[in-house]
Each structure stands twice: as structure tokens, then as C-alpha cells.
């Protein structure tokens, strides 16, 4: 498998990346870990005459935790997420989700920025970031802007990011309470048949608020406000969980593929979401 030829660039700052993106427009693309992009290039599903490797670009790495404000640089790998003790304490759902992505080799290379920018409905981080109400920082020729994860995804591989913009970091406010990421896959290293991210806060014996998002059950990640609302002000008992699952199932739109027919996927989605809610509640 030999990808189409390309010119290779390795700029050292964002300005250099943006200049190349402006110069070559549609013909240029950035590469982070390459573990979504290279397979596509090998299959010639992506042809990129000008490939801009981000590995040497300053300022794209690092995890900073300032009280409950968390900022994760785009080039942070899944392995970095897993290894970061401070992050595991502040927002353990990130490690939980990262451990369910691909396999060790892929996690050393795959980055948070690549995972959320890619726009593949199979990626796990987009749904997680919607659940956490994360903001994506984009830098382009006209400066910097932030877009909420919940507004970022338009269709498969179509996002709010323009061709000249680079995603530099992901940030969110860690919430008190419990959270969980549950995923059903056919084998380790597989994308989700269904996955769910749940975050909820507890007041005494009732749930004060909940946020629920699902992965690979539509052409975009699905954040379901109705599912979250179904848990709020309830003791998260069986009937509340069922109401939340029913609400989430009304918001997803899975298609049949080699992971199964639609009916099966909806069934799995319900099972996985139920597990995630119970696990998050037990931790709240």
C-alpha cells in the first residue's frame, strides 16, 4: 500500500503551519499522529499533495490543570492522557476513555487534537468532549476562536474547522460528581459498536444534573440533552434510567454495517448507556 506522493513539511511554529495552509489551500493537510490519516492515505481515500507534520510545532503539547480548569494541548497523545496522574485525579473519565481506544502502539501516536478534529463518527473523544462540554481552540489566518464541542460536528468528516485553521487545544471545566465512559467493541483495537459518556452530579440521594453523549451511533457524535434531563431530579432508579435510555435512543441514528444491523446497534446502545449511567452514579 503506497500512498500518493506528497511534499512533506515540518514547521516549528503555528505561523509556519498557517502560512502553508494558506498557500496550498485544499491541497494541504496537517498530520498529528497520523493514525487516522496514514491509513486513509495508504488506501488512497485521502490524497494530500502537501503534508504538514505537526510534531515539531511549539506550544501544541502539554496538559495544564488550574483548579477545575483543564487544558489539553492538541498534540497530547492518548498515552500521555493515560499517564498523567493529575488528570486522572481531576477528570478520571479521560483515562477511562483513552484506555478503550485502539491498542498500546496506536495510543502512543494518536493525539487528542487528531481524534477530535478528524470527524470520524467512530472516534471516541468527540462524544466524550461533548459530554464534558469542552471547547476547541482553533487558530487560523484571522486569529483565534473557540468552538464548543457540541457545535463542532456537522457530518461525517465535516466540522466547523475551516481548511486554514489548526486546532491547538481542548479545554473544559471539571465538574464535581461522577462520570463514566463505556464502550462495546468487537475486539481490542476496534471502533465502538456503541459507546456512551455520562457525567452527573449528586445532591443527597438525587441527581442534580446529567450530561450524556454517544459515539458511533450517527454520522456525528450525539449529545442528548433530553437524556440528561430525564435523569435530573430523580434518584437514578430503574425507571429514570429507562427514561434516559429511551430519550437517547430517540436521538441516535445508527446505520447497518459490519458491526451489525440497526436493531442490534440500538440494543447495544441501550445496554452500554445503562451501564455508563449506573457506573457514573456509583461514583457520584
Amino acid at each position: 500500500m503506497i500512498p500518493a506522493p506528497f511534499d512533506y513539511y515540518r514547521p516549528t511554529d503555528i505561523a509556519g503551519v498557517i502560512a502553508l495552509l494558506e498557500e496550498h489551500g485544499d491541497d494541504a493537510r496537517v498530520m498529528a499522529g497520523g493514525h487516522s490519516l496514514i491509513p486513509m492515505m495508504k488506501l488512497r481515500m485521502a490524497e494530500i499533495p502537501h503534508l504538514i507534520d505537526l510534531q515539531d510545532v511549539a506550544g501544541l503539547g502539554g496538559i495544564t490543570i488550574d483548579g477545575s480548569e483543564i487544558r489539553i494541548g492538541a498534540m497530547t497523545t492518548q498515552a500521555d492522557l493515560i499517564d498523567h496522574e493529575g488528570l486522572a485525579a481531576a477528570a478520571p473519565i479521560l483515562r477511562e476513555a483513552a484506555l478503550q481506544i485502539a491498542d498500546p502502539q496506536v495510543r502512543y501516536m494518536g493525539t487528542v487534537g487528531g481524534n477530535v478534529a478528524n470527524g470520524d463518527p467512530g472516534n471516541d473523544m468527540p462524544g466524550l468532549m461533548q459530554c464534558l462540554d469542552a471547547q476547541f481552540t482553533l487558530v487560523g489566518p484571522d486569529g483565534e476562536r473557540t468552538v464548543a464541542a457540541r457545535d463542532f460536528y456537522e457530518a461525517a468528516y465535516m466540522t466547523a474547522r475551516t481548511d486554514e485553521e489548526v486546532l491547538t487545544c481542548v479545554s473544559f471545566t471539571a465538574q464535581p460528581g461522577g462520570a463514566a465512559y463505556e464502550k462495546q467493541k468487537r475486539k481490542i483495537g476496534d471502533y465502538a459498536t456503541a459507546a456512551a459518556a455520562v457525567q452527573l452530579t449528586r445532591e443527597g440521594s438525587t441527581c442534580a444534573a446529567a450530561s450524556i453523549a454517544m459515539t458511533n451511533l450517527s454520522d456525528v457524535p450525539v449529545w442528548s440533552p433530553a437524556a440528561g434531563a430525564a435523569l435530573a431530579d430523580t434518584p437514578v432508579d430503574d425507571s429514570a434510567i429507562k427514561a434516559a435510555v429511551d430519550a437517547a435512543l430517540a436521538d441516535i441514528d445508527p446505520t447497518e454495517d459490519n458491526r451489525g444491523p440497526v436493531k442490534f446497534k440500538r440494543h447495544v446502545a441501550g445496554v452500554i448507556l445503562t451501564r455508563a449511567i449506573k457506573s457514573a452514579w456509583a461514583r457520584a
Binding site: 491509513p39 498500546p104 502502539q105
Partner: peptide, 19 residues
């Protein structure tokens, strides 16, 4: 195809030599 690149286990079929 696993090798070690800069201290990471890497599938060398998924890395360009330029990289």
C-alpha cells in the same frame, strides 16, 4: 512491524519515513 521510535512502540507500517 512493531519497532521502538523515540521510546514509543510504533507500528512501522503506519509511519512515513519522513516522519
Amino acid at each position: 512491524c512493531t519497532v521502538i521510535v523515540n521510546g514509543k512502540s510504533v507500528k512501522s507500517c503506519t509511519m512515513f519515513v519522513g516522519q
